[in-house]
Amino acid sequence: MSVIEVKDVNKMFGAFRALNELSMEVNQGEIYGFIGPNGAGKSTTIRILLGMLKPTSGSVSLFGRDAWKDAVDIHRRCAYVPGDVHVWPNLTGGEVIDLFLKMNGEFSTKKRDEWIERFQFDPSKKCRSYSKGNRQKIALISAFASEADLFIFDEPTSGLDPLMEQVFQQGVKEIRNAGKTVLLSSHILSEVEKLCDRVAIIRHGEIIEDGTIQELRHLTRMNIIVETKQPFKSIEAINGIHELRKEGSVVSFEVDTEYMDEVISYISSYGIIRLESKPPTLEHLFMRHYEQKGNKEEQS
């Protein structure tokens, strides 16, 4: 069953086309990743889903209802967390959480208190004294403690430390296990890889790829830098090796994660002096894969 359906949506701001024939579908009970570089159209899409913007053309529905005409009713079933939370400075964190929850209807104080404890949040302080991370916790606690059916997270872990990011990730998994739906917009590829069932990649207002993480395996390539006692003979012949570069005794390349064991076994036989590995950043992903792809399309 589809919770979100976006069909052939265009959005113009004057002469500027922010979204171009964008289509996407999010099913009930799944975590759907929505990624792309800054300015790609992620926030515009989310504002249209929330009924904050009207599409120039195309159709958008949530729970089978029109996102623009039925926005008020749809909001009762949604929880939204933006990447930069602004709250009332003279209210306490607890008062703001209760206000957000009451706006969505009935809520459980037990569930609210549980999430306050899990996020290690002090609800007694005035909001003006909170850091960005604590303001983010207000919105996250309000979302997780709600009875929403659809959760829309737009860079939700901005300002959170790694421990609180883990609390967030566990909360998202619990939402899915309860049969509810999540749309997650994030620039943290590792977060998307851990959580999402499917991913859509947006570039210049268009969905250029979508599928499962396994189907989009180039997202999970690791960047490897290695220096060995003896030079490699034919590492390029090994499956899963991409973007091979050599500078003296130092070799750098990208490797598909499913071939990591084979690659490490191979380079170990040459005597490792130094080995570094790190996941690709979203910026690097778009520079390496999508900008190159875009340039080829423009030249053809």
Rank of each mutant, 00 (worst) to 15 (best):
V3H: 04
K7P: 08
V9Q: 03
K11M: 08
F13L: 07
G14V: 07
A15T: 13
F16G: 11
F16K: 15
L19I: 04
E21N: 15
S23W: 10
M24N: 02
Y32P: 07
G36R: 05
G36M: 05
N38P: 09
N38C: 08
G41K: 05
K42M: 07
T44E: 08
I46H: 04
I48F: 09
I48Q: 04
G51Y: 05
S57L: 01
S61Y: 10
L62A: 10
L62D: 02
G64F: 00
R65Q: 15
W68G: 04
D70R: 10
D70G: 09
C78Y: 10
P82N: 06
G83P: 10
D84L: 14
H86E: 14
W88R: 14
G94S: 07
G94Q: 03
E95Q: 04
V96G: 05
K102T: 11
K102V: 00
N104S: 14
G105Y: 02
I116N: 02
R118F: 01
K125Y: 09
C127R: 11
C127L: 01
S131G: 03
S131T: 01
K132R: 12
I138Y: 00
I138W: 07
A143F: 02
A143E: 06
A148G: 10
L150T: 03
L150F: 04
F153A: 05
S158F: 01
L160R: 07
E165R: 14
Q166H: 12
Q166A: 11
N177G: 12
G179K: 05
K180T: 02
E191M: 06
V192M: 03
L195N: 07
D197L: 00
A200F: 04
I202A: 09
I207K: 04
I208C: 01
D210H: 13
E215K: 02
E215D: 06
L216R: 01
T220H: 00
M222F: 08
I224Y: 06
E227T: 11
T228E: 08
N239C: 08
G248S: 06
V250N: 03
E254C: 12
T257D: 12
D261R: 13
I264M: 15
S265T: 14
S269R: 14
G271P: 03
I273C: 12
E276R: 06
K278I: 08
P279K: 06
P280T: 14
R288C: 09
H289Q: 13
Q292K: 14
N295Q: 12
K296P: 02
E297V: 15
E298C: 06
Q299G: 13
S300L: 12
